[in-house]
Amino acid sequence: MLLVLLVVTALTIVRVRSILAVVMLGGIYSFLMASVFLVLDAVDVAFTEAAVGAGITTVLGLVALSLTVDREKIPSHNALLPLAVVVVTGAVLLFATQDMPNLGDPNAAPHQHVAPRYIEETPRAIGIPNIVTAVLADYRSFDTLGEVAVIFTAGIGVMLLLGRRRKRKPEDSE
């Protein structure tokens, strides 16, 4: 049921022409996706998606919208070629899922090798109950540091892009 709602919301995003509606539907879509993550036992991912995906992304979208235009124009090119590309790519990907283990299969390869070690060692080596936090902040803390560097770079990029405008404006008006 949740998955049906997810697909319907995504299809509506394709159909709707008002960008405001698209941004709001994007928030609904993110929240549905967070619920799916919750059902799939990924609680940390679910609340990050709910906060970042449904929250911050929607706010960023609305800010960008307020600085641009709301109506989307109907594309003038032929719609068949993109549709064909999408259908072919989707068919190939669906074909590829034949080789994947069934959903929830406890004997699947990803659950056999590295993951049990983390689950066994975390209580002894780190001593906090949430394994996801333990891996994120301790075993892979350098990855998280790299992630912070990426966000910092993106922040600088946004500031440079939007900061230049204010300096330029007086020149433009002359």
Partner: peptide, 9 residues
């Protein structure tokens, strides 16, 4: 996330 799910987990 789907590939990380274990049935009954």
């Amino acid at each position: 996330i789907s590939s990380g799910k274990v049935a009954g987990g």
